[in-house]
Write a protein that binds this DNA or RNA. Structure first.
Length: 849
DNA sequence: CCCTGGTCCCAACTT
DNA sequence: GGGACCAGGG
């Protein structure tokens, strides 16, 4: 029982309550992962549970992998049977790959195959979904300017997350727009089925439907899993909740771990009711609260708790830590976004040097609300020659060349996948143009087949001029050849097609050096000397089906994809070639793990940005959302400005603002030792425009003043705070926005070597933190807002979005929008009790609140 | 049919 | 800063 002694009494109770439902309310840093892993270990080691009877579900693959490793460390010798630790989505995909055909229904047309998805289904990512919605809208003749595909898709996803089908959306709709959405939704669903595709939301929905509809499938899983654990329970949506209930069966051995204050995915359907209704659905549920925080200093914890305490919709809890005191929370007010980023880079480089020298855990994170903020920080880090790691943003699998090849694989796996087919049918260009595509779409529509089916028909019926027909044949043969490779029938196919003399046109064979010879491969003769990579032949069963890496190589050779890129001869093209090689490497790794093509594709579809987090990186840049579950000795929380954080799109709904506040709480509680909050007084929105003045985030004001310390505000910004000085952005042109360094401390000067020439970067220097801290200490004020010259022109009051105001009748509210100038300005204000009100500034007796 | 350059929007978080 | 879309010449 030794390892259980490492737990505090509450943790231990959570671990040892194994029979019946348990809800663990685990505050930030209270050892949540520890409790889950120890619980699994306890079940196996002390209670003799079979490892494979335990199922733990997480939100990211990363979390699942980490949990698995930690369990393995606790329980040696798990090599044969392992607990299933997986993300919701991956688990559902596995279930569906096994049993989705149980959902097929017999066709009413005699002799036709059953209707519904087959095991060969593909997963549609967001861009696939977008394309599909677009094509549906086009077909229905809906103008994509009035209703954007984007908003339609958001609506559809919302409906799915709330388990509403198109009919239900239609019945509930009370405006023509929603009715149209319902209509698009219906068609979208039909198209998905036709393409044998599922979108992300479907993965959960169909899994739930499967467990509900097929009792033998449900019985199988209920017999198999005796213990169900759910991580990040506060972020589960309805389908996930139902899935958990169905898997729990009658045993009710479910353990859910969550923290209501860290619920940050309501926009993805996360439902706080899941926590509340847990006690209703499982009346015998036991609740365990973990309130000791092992991560942060008292100052950090207090500051974060003070912020989140402003939320109304919460149960409330009392987190405590034994790490008394700690350094105060730093606040830096940068004149603009560039300076904010440079400050962070400078501060972090100093910090890391110091901490690393002391042999401490030298890691720091820069957290921001939106991915687009990362660019400035990346530039700043590069200029300081700091190695950094960005999580999220543009992922590997979203790159055009990767998506192209993945789309080829998807078509080979499932030719009915029309979206992928459209993407690759003329990539690289092979002479298939608009008219050909229109003909294909028409035939598909008329005969009710997929585009792939239409390809065959158009060729058979010779519906196009010879030239176009030849191009189309070339494409069809390419796909058929690859499919034959996959099936292991390539040689047979070659013999057959050469007899029919309907093979690939001779010119293709002559023009392109086919480095990879599929015929040799399928016959087991090995790779032709042209590639000569003997390593690849070693794993292959002679004559057996081709693996993913081999198909990829075949595709690259046959389409001339890389060849064409190399001819471009630009750095960009070569980086694309590099990416493709990386993809082939990934496929070889997949093959080494013994995975099939569909598993490779599933993996590509389900890797998330958060999975890219590398805990060895000293500096990590990421969004607040991606930071959930992580911890860092030093955390920079940046862009604390009304409209950015909290984001302007949340101003309308008080509930959304509360979620922003939880996000702030999540961000702050990532910090172990030091936390720095920053804001830019002026920020550029779309790169080139004039910078806009910002209002400090309300969250800044919610941090108790005694816990905060101003650090390093450049003096020119300070000078401009006095009346009459020009705005900082007006100074940019003539001088620099930061002041000359007084003590000439070399470390405060951005490294000159890295400065891109031609930009106004030169000579940007900074003040010493110590000097400025002293200055602000003597000033004795928490947050000084430099006067915004823009405001003075616009009128005395000039309420801006995000500001808090008081109205004689409606009380306190937040400015949402401002229209017009001067006295005629109309402002829209969100009042907690009265909702949105549009007021004329001149008449409404508004005051600053 | 293909490529190009210009223009118009845009951008919150993500499995 | 950049992706999507379109018009127009090769």
């Amino acid at each position: 029982m030794s390892f259980l002694d490492q737990l505090n009494p509450q943790q231990r109770e959570a671990v040892e309550t194994t029979d019946g439902p348990v809800l663990i309310l685990a505050g930030a840093g209270s050892g949540k992962t520890r409790v889950i892993t120890y619980r699994i270990a306890h079940l196996i080691e002390n209670l003799g549970a079979m490892p494979e009877s335990i199922l733990a579900m997480t939100f990211t693959n990363k979390a699942a992998a980490e949990m698995g490793e930690r369990v393995e460390k606790l329980v040696g010798g798990l090599s044969i049977a392992k607990p299933v630790i997986s993300t919701f989505h991956s688990f559902c995909v596995r279930m569906l790959r096994r049993d989705i055909e149980a959902l097929r229904i017999l066709s009413t047309v005699p002799g036709s195959p059953p209707i519904g998805h087959t095991k060969q289904f593909v997963i549609y990512d967001e861009s696939d979904q977008q394309q599909l919605v677009k094509s549906v809208m086009k077909r229905l003749g809906i103008d994509d300017k009035q209703v954007t595909p984007r908003s339609v898709l958001a609506h559809i996803s919302w409906a799915k997350n709330h388990m509403l089908n198109p009919q239900e959306v239609y019945l509930k709709s009370d405006d023509p727009k929603t009715e149209r959405v319902a209509q698009i939704y219906e068609e979208y669903r039909k198209e998905l089925r036709k393409a044998n595709a599922l979108d992300f939301d479907d993965l959960l929905l169909e899994a739930v439907r499967l467990l509900k509809a097929a009792s033998e499938v449900r019985d199988y899983y209920n017999r198999r899993f005796h213990y169900i654990l759910v991580d990040e329970y506060q972020d589960t949506n309805r389908p996930q909740y139902e899935l958990m209930r169905l898997l729990a069966g009658t045993r009710h051995n479910v353990c859910a771990v969550g923290d209501e204050d860290q619920s940050i995915y309501s926009w993805r359907g996360a439902d706080i009711r899941n926590i509340l209704e847990f006690e209703q659905d499982f009346p015998e549920a036991k609740i365990v609260r973990l309130e000791q925080n092992y991560r942060s200093t008292q100052n950090i914890l207090q500051a974060a708790s003070a912020v989140v305490a402003n939320n109304v919709r919460r149960k409330g809890k009392n987190l405590w830590t034994s790490r008394q005191g700690g350094t105060r929370i730093g606040y830096y007010e940068a004149p603009d976004g560039e300076n904010e980023a440079l400050f962070a880079a400078d501060y972090i480089s100093k910090y890391l040097r110091k901490v690393a020298g002391e042999g401490e855990n030298a890691r720091a994170a820069v957290l921001y609300r939106t991915n687009s903020q990362s660019r400035l920080f990346e530039e700043a880090m590069r200029r300081y020659q700091l190695k950094y790691h960005v999580v999220g943003g543009f992922s590997f699998y979203e790159r055009a060349e990767i998506k192209d090849l993945i789309s080829y694989l998807k078509v080979i796996h499932n030719p009915d996948d029309s979206i992928s087919l459209l993407r690759v049918i003329n990539t690289p260009t092979r002479g298939i143009g608009k008219t050909t595509l229109e003909t294909l779409e028409q035939v598909a529509l008329e005969t009710g087949v997929s585009l792939w089916g239409a390809v065959e028909q158009v060729i058979q019926r010779q519906l196009l001029p010879p030239r176009a027909l030849a191009a189309l044949k070339g494409f069809r043969d390419l796909i058929d050849d690859a499919r034959a490779m996959l099936a292991g029938t390539y040689v047979e196919r070659m013999q057959r097609t050469s007899q029919l003399d309907e093979s690939v046109p001779d010119e293709t064979l002559e023009d392109e050096q086919i480095a990879f010879d599929p015929a040799a491969f399928n016959s087991g003769a090995g790779v032709t000397p042209a590639t000569g990579e003997s390593e690849d032949t070693a794993f292959r069963t002679p004559g057996g089906p081709a693996n993913t890496a081999e198909i990829l190589k075949f595709l690259i050779d046959r389409t001339g994809y890389i060849k064409q890129l190399e001819e471009e001869d630009t750095p960009e093209a070569y980086s694309r070639v590099e990416n493709l090689r990386e993809l082939v490497n990934a496929a070889m790794d997949s093959r080494d793990r013994g995975e099939t093509l569909d598993q490779f594709l599933d993996h590509a579809a389900l890797v998330s940005d958060a999975d890219a987090y590398d805990e060895r990186a000293q500096i990590t840049l990421m969004t607040l959302h991606a930071a959930k579950g992580l911890e860092f000795p030093l955390v920079f929380l940046c862009g604390l400005e009304e409209g950015l954080f909290p984001h302007s799109r949340t101003f309308l709904q008080p509930d959304d603002i509360e979620e922003e506040r939880r996000l702030c709480y999540v961000g702050m509680t990532r910090a172990m030792d030091s936390l720095v909050l920053t804001r830019a007084v002026y920020r550029r929105r779309y790169g080139t425009d004039l910078p806009e003045a910002s209002v400090p985030s309300r969250f800044l004001e919610e941090v108790p003043g005694a816990l905060i310390e101003d650090i390093g505000t450049p003096r020119r910004a300070r000078a401009s705070a006095r009346a009459g000085a020009p705005a900082p952005h007006q100074q940019h042109a003539e001088t620099h926005y930061a002041y000359e360094d007084e003590d000439q401390s070399a470390s405060w000067v951005a490294p000159a070597t890295q400065r891109p020439a031609g930009k106004s970067y030169s000579g940007k220097t900074y003040n010493s933190i110590d000097n400025i801290a002293e200055f602000f200490a003597s000033r004795g004020k928490k947050f000084s807002l430099p006067k915004l010259p823009v405001e003075e022109v616009k009128g005395k009051k000039g309420f801006r979005p995000g500001q808090k105001v008081r109205h004689p009748k409606y009380g306190e509210g937040t400015v949402y929008q401002r229209e017009g100038d001067g006295e005629d300005a109309k402002i829209t204000v969100q009042f907690p009790r009265y909702g949105l009100k549009k007021l004329v500034e001149k008449y409404a007796q508004l005051e600053r609140a």
